[in-house]
Amino acid sequence: MNFSKSNVRKKELKQWMAFQVFRALSILVVVILILILSFITYHGISVISWEFLTSMPEDGMSKGGVFPAIIGTLCLVAGSMIFAVPIGILSAIYINEYTKASFFKRFIKLMTNNLAGIPSIVFGLFGMTLFVKTLGFGDSILAGSLTLGLLTLPVVIRTTEEALKSVENSFRHGSYALGATKLQTIRRVVLPMAFPNIITGVILSIGRVSGETAPILFTVAAYFLPKLPTGISDQVMALPYHLYVISTSGTNIEESRPMAYGTALVLIGIVLIVNIAANALRKYFSKKVKMN
């Protein structure tokens, strides 16, 4: 066999080249992200003002602000979370703490994964037929929130499950050995330990819900509605749909452009805040647990 030096050098050269390629492609991904963010920030920042955030759209949505859309999105986020968070957490508790490795558990997991994979536009159709028509909620915050809630349910379930799984069994056994019931163990030991990860998951799903458009198209979103909702059966404007409308089908697309940049920046701002909050929380809690 030949272990010549040139062979070794060739090997190292190949490695060097491969690593450079991977590094370059990774940098490209980051550049793409930065490009998108900076492009929208650059064009949007001059539009954003207190007035933009707090006034009604005017002049065929080419002037004024996005206040009703912000409020609408907030309503939808709140509504969907009220629905998805408790059910998602309860569901994950049942899957992770009560069912054993059985057919039933696998079935439920499969269904949850399937639900997660269903395109958001299909959720929109489903929400329209079930909530808007069959149950007679009409185009309303209620119908939109429930649709969005179902959409995020698998995300909440999955993150909660991961969080519960990361709690070591020795803590559960320790609690049982002291005569705690299953429920007491879950409530006093498992949930408090899993809480940070659960809350991080919930925050991230808030980011997702606030940006979804397809599910609200036919369940709640109003094209133009310069007033605030008064109840859960009202229609609302929403930021993502508003951006879609003014950038593709507004009465005057060119003149609405600045409004579109501003709206896009508000949406990105929400996502940024949500991500930073989730990461900060994760860091904060992981420091706390590091005392271990």
């Binding site: 690593f19 991977f22 590094r23 990774s26 991904v29 980051v30 793409i32 992200l33 998108i36 492009f39 929208i40 991230l204 980011g207 997702r208 606030s210 940006g211 979804e212 458009t213 397809a214 993502p240 749909y241 951006l243 879609y244 950038s247 579109a260 896009a264 949406l267 990105i268 996502v271 940024l272 949500v274 991500n275 990461n279």
Partner: peptide
């Protein structure tokens, strides 16, 4: 496999951010 832990800790949240950007914003861009 290649990046240091520090670089990875920077990349990971950026990728998450990429996942978080709403599809209308991508469409708009």
């Amino acid at each position: 496999e290649i990046a240091s832990k520090r670089v990875r800790n920077i990349l990971k949240p950026l990728i998450e951010l990429l996942a978080g950007i709403p599809s209308v914003v991508y469409g708009f861009f």
